[in-house]
């Protein structure tokens, strides 16, 4: 019963967050000092423009506009993208773009965690010694290069000079698994470097703290090997911050890979947002941001549920909230 109450409260909180974020974005769209109708219908007459404004609620006040947008949004109508020749639906674009971004994000996370976890464990185990120093110095250098710079360097060297990998575009699974990955490698690398050093640092710090705990000495006194102690006794209680930050960075990666997605033209959500800004497609922008906010909230819940698995103590603490 207590548990149910906790989760209901949590969901309610996140729901409020969602409403606030989407309302904020909707206000921003209204504040932009340009007339949307003029932009999307440059050659129409004033009557047509007035009809357009009314159709998306721009003739109402900020709250009326928001409610109309929200009503459409929950029914799956995310609005339209306007061309001089006609329109396309925002949802149509996002449905195509979303899987690409999700895959890019998943590969990036798997790759970053796959590298960062062994590095973090090793550098905590060898804290202060050579392996640790080499790892932290290398990561420091890499983390100070922004992702887009890594992307550009990769394009020049691996894409153009060596011509090993395609520099642009996206390939689906059906075009061949290898083809698919060939298009993903460079974007994933560009997005991962910063994450790898962030994750390694988090894990290292938490592991070092845990290694000082009595239960580690206790595990040693049972005659367990260092490897077993590190992975089975120390890694799990030390990984909560790591996994929390990884889950929270998911939301950011879905829409936040704007620059990288644009450089590599992967046509994911980030790319769509980039295009929406360039093309003054404000409805598209507003709905995309709302979808990303949904993902943020979703991964927040994942963190809540997941941390109970990693550390059983939090499960009971919740009932005392």
């Amino acid at each position: 019963m207590e548990k149910l109450k906790f989760w209901l409260q949590r969901v309610a909180q996140l729901f409020v967050v969602l409403l606030l974020v989407t309302f904020g974005v909707s206000l921003l769209v209204r504040i932009i000092p340009v007339d949307l109708a003029t932009i999307v219908m440059p050659v129409a007459d004033e009557n047509q423009r007035a009809a357009f404004r009314a159709s998306i609620g721009l003739n109402k006040g900020p709250i009326g506009y928001y409610l109309q947008w929200l009503g459409n949004f929950v029914q799956g109508d995310l609005g339209k993208i306007y061309y001089s020749g006609g329109t396309e639906t925002v949802s149509g674009h996002l449905i195509k773009a979303m899987p690409r971004s999700l895959l890019l994000m998943a590969y990036t996370q798997i790759f970053a965690l796959g590298i960062a976890i062994p590095l973090g464990v090793l550098s905590a185990y060898r804290a202060g010694r050579r392996a640790d120093r080499v790892i932290s110095n290398t990561l420091f250098i890499f983390s100070s290069i922004p992702g887009f710079a890594i992307g550009l360097i990769l394009i020049i060297v691996v894409g153009t000079k060596l011509a090993w990998l395609p520099t642009l575009g996206y390939a689906t699974y059906s075009e061949g698994i290898w083809e698919h990955f060939k298009h993903m490698i460079m974007p994933v690398l560009s997005l991962s470097f910063g994450l790898i050093s962030q994750y390694t640092r988090l894990l290292r710090a938490d592991m070092i703290a845990s290694l000082r705990e009595d239960y580690v000495t206790m595990a040693m006194s049972k005659g367990l090997s260092d490897r077993r102690i590190l992975w089975q006794h120390v890694f799990r209680p030390s990984s909560i911050t790591l996994f929390t930050s990884a889950a929270l960075s998911m939301g950011g990666l879905i829409g936040g890979a704007i620059v990288i997605e644009s450089i590599f033209a992967t046509y994911g959500v980030g790319f769509e947002i980039f295009a929406a800004i360039g093309g003054r497609q404000y409805i598209m922008l507003q709905s995309s941001v709302a979808v990303i906010a949904l993902f943020y909230v979703f991964f927040n819940l994942v963190v809540d549920i997941g941390s109970g698995f990693v550390d059983p103590r939090t499960r009971d603490r919740r009932t005392n909230v």
């Binding site: 206790m218 005659g223 103590r313």
Partner: peptide, 21 residues
């Protein structure tokens, strides 16, 4: 030699047992 030779009981059982296992 640990376990079957020497073993230790620790001062504080709360901190000496792993909290998540």
């Amino acid at each position: 030699l640990f376990g079957s030779g020497m073993a230790m009981i620790f001062q504080d059982p709360l901190t000496a047992l792993n909290p998540v296992r």
